[in-house]
Design a protein around this nucleic acid. Structure first.
Lengths: 218, 218
DNA sequence: TAGATTGTTAATCGATTAACAATC
DNA sequence: TAGATTGTTAATCGATTAACAATC
């Protein structure tokens, strides 16, 4: 699988904080009314909750050109953001873990709409193997090894119980998957060239709890 | 419901970045072997991936006292972190949306273990009302209003489709829920005194996509 | 005492914000 | 031209890191 480089030689890398906001801008642009072909930073700000100055700063890193006095060309801007995020081609996903969470993820309707395609689900439980989830047949994790070097999977999603998370990551890495999203509440180790992001329900709740505790008592 | 204030008058507020790491330290401490009653910042660092200097800086904001030459007393430290996160009392949760995601969340075994208790699930679909999920009966969202002022729910979780997210938030706010975790891929509005956190699958995947695109081609 | 490890300082880095000159 | 809005500068803020004196 060949991905075109997203950076030209002289181009500055996009700061992390900016990258994390690009998906929000993208969604806003997708929701823009058909006829509107120009959008101002103030509008983007209103629609995303990001300050207008921040929006302009972020967009300026895309090497984009808005028009002073007018705003940004909506279509072009959308394309530039998608390009910066590497979303030009459809990205393939594999889920490890076909339990409750894995099922919910497999049936998530937003995948296709945002340019992702689920291509495989793996589990270890015999009774789950062969069932279908989100249009894909559940296979045994052992088959994951067969992917090695195929480039068939761009992003791996770990939806296993806590105890199996590290093994799931190891298998994905072996299979050549370089980007992993983990829902398991554990720190997982991976080679430095593998990008891992973690979503942890308990952590989110605990952070909210902190806010709660600091609120004036009811 | 009376929550003791977590801050004493002279206490500095804990920076956001620190708060977001406290749950990780907490988990590490929970996983510590029984017998170990002292832990050094370097150990915490190894177990959580946070640099040791950062660990010490974070912990120093808890008003905690480690012992130079020795480390931190594990039990006390655990209690201090839990306290800073407002986790001393059990926190009650309500989920809005009993679809795939809501079901997965309701059945999440980690809730109880981390001191959260699911007390209610709401939906609008007639065929879901009355079914049981995670030990709780699914009720109609209209019943959410009855909670108003009761303080029965500390944290609300939005697991509805995109289109219903704002309404779910509004209902939770009306019901007096002051902390909300949303899984819907939309910007939702809420009064400033309501803490909202958002977990968005598509955003996470798109950020990973960016990393992918910047990798050297295979 | 000698060794270990904290707590804190100071330097650095990165992100946010306001303001405004440039310019459509 | 007059009005609008970008792109960029400079100021500010907050977070990270290394280093080390304090001290068990």
């Amino acid at each position: 699988m060949n991905r075109r480089a997203v950076t030209s030689p002289g181009m500055q890398p996009i700061p992390r904080a900016t990258v994390s906001r690009l998906p929000r801008y993208l969604r806003f642009l997708d929701d823009l009314p058909e006829g509107q072909d120009t959008v101002a930073s103030e509008e983007i700000s209103a629609g995303t909750g990001v300050k207008a100055a921040q929006v302009r700063k972020d967009l300026s890193r895309l090497g984009t050109l808005g028009t002073r006095g007018l705003g940004y060309p909506a279509r072009t801007l959308r394309a530039l953001i998608a390009r910066a995020l590497g979303l030009e081609a459809e990205l393939t996903l594999a889920i490890v873990g076909a339990g409750n969470l894995g099922s919910a993820l497999a049936n998530y309707p937003g995948f296709a709409r945002r340019g992702f395609r689920l291509v495989a689900i793996y589990d270890v439980e015999e009774h789950r193997i062969g069932t279908r989830l989100g249009g894909v047949e559940v296979r045994h994790v052992d088959e994951l090894r067969r992917l090695a070097g195929s480039g068939a999977v761009a992003i791996g999603i770990v939806a296993t119980p806590e105890g199996a998370a590290q093994e799931a990551v190891d298998l994905l890495v072996e299979a050549g998957v370089g980007s992993i999203l983990s829902f398991a509440p554990t720190v997982v180790a991976a080679p430095p060239d593998v990008a891992i992001r973690q979503v942890d329900l308990a952590t989110e709740l605990q952070i909210l709890s902190h806010h709660l505790a600091r609120r004036p008592a009811l």
